[in-house]
């Protein structure tokens, strides 16, 4: 099966600092790919390159078998790549429907088509089996952390997106809310989306992911099936870049 999203040989520097070295990553439809790595390994930079926030210095992005150019968030959105950032990017002073359609409002003529937007938002949320949100006309400021995360994810899948990238969705959540969000992540993949999950939490990674991609100091140490590795091996990949036969062969000095 060819991956839905594939990045090949990506280099990225900020001034004299090279953050990504020849990074390759693939994400398959219907699977959760966990992207792990220590602080500063380049996870967020890689995601921002895919999302068009940062231009890449070298390498290519292949989407659905075709090489594509991503020059901005709009391009990524048009391809069907949605990124849910850690800070969620929700407007507290707007309600759930308004946030979900922000920047892509439905209109009839000049006027906003509130009824259609409300219906679609409702459908999306029930399609994701979200029952924690009681009214979709609540202001986002009145939602809990888990509910906000849910809204941000629902916002990402509203657009018939094909790839959803989640940047540490559970980092700020409690136990019960983490479970809810992970369940939602799994459901996204089960509906046929390619999901990339950035996480620091090994429990989360092993709970939902099908594949694990480990970044080490800006290099892709390994991409493995979750079923083939142990907890300890992944930790080694994150901290040392290699684990037995897996990982970077030449050894990278920090």
């Amino acid at each position: 099966m060819t991956p839905l999203l594939e990045v090949r040989g990506i280099d990225k520097s900020f001034g004299p600092v090279q953050v990504l070295h020849d990074v390759t990553l693939h994400a398959h439809a219907g699977e959760v790919t966990a992207l792990v790595g220590d602080n500063g390994a380049g996870k967020s930079t890689l995601v921002k390159c895919i999302g068009g926030i940062h231009p890449i210095d070298a390498g290519e992005i292949v989407f659905d078998g075709k090489p594509v150019q991503v020059h901005g968030p709009r391009d990524a959105g048009e391809l069907g790549i949605e990124i849910v950032y850690q800070d969620l990017a929700l407007c507290d002073n707007l309600d759930i429907v308004q946030n979900m359609f922000l920047g892509r409002e439905r209109r009839s003529g000049l006027v906003l088509d509130e009824a259609t937007m409300e219906e679609l938002a409702q459908q999306t949320l029930s399609g994701l089996s979200v029952r924690t949100v009681k009214s979709i006309r609540q202001q986002v400021s009145s939602l809990s952390g888990g509910q906000r995360q849910t809204v941000a994810i629902a916002k990402a899948v509203l657009w018939n997106s094909k790839v959803v990238i989640l940047d540490e969705p559970t980092a700020a959540l409690g136990v019960a809310q983490t479970a809810q969000v992970l369940e939602l992540v799994r459901r996204l993949a089960d509906t046929g989306l390619a999901v990339v999950l950035i996480s620091h939490n090994m429990n989360d990674v092993f709970a939902v992911s099908d594949r694990i991609a480990a970044l080490y100091l800006g290099r892709m140490a390994a991409q493995v099936r979750t079923a083939d590795v142990t907890h300890a091996q992944v930790v080694e990949l994150i901290t040392a870049g290699r684990s037995g036969d897996l990982g970077l062969k030449n050894g990278v000095t920090p």
Binding site: A89, N93, R104
Partner: peptide
């Protein structure tokens, strides 16, 4: 307008 006033960064990422 409300979105930019509420969270300019969110608005920017939403393509506004």
């Amino acid at each position: 307008l409300y979105a930019v006033g509420g969270n300019a960064e969110a608005a920017r990422r939403a393509g506004i």
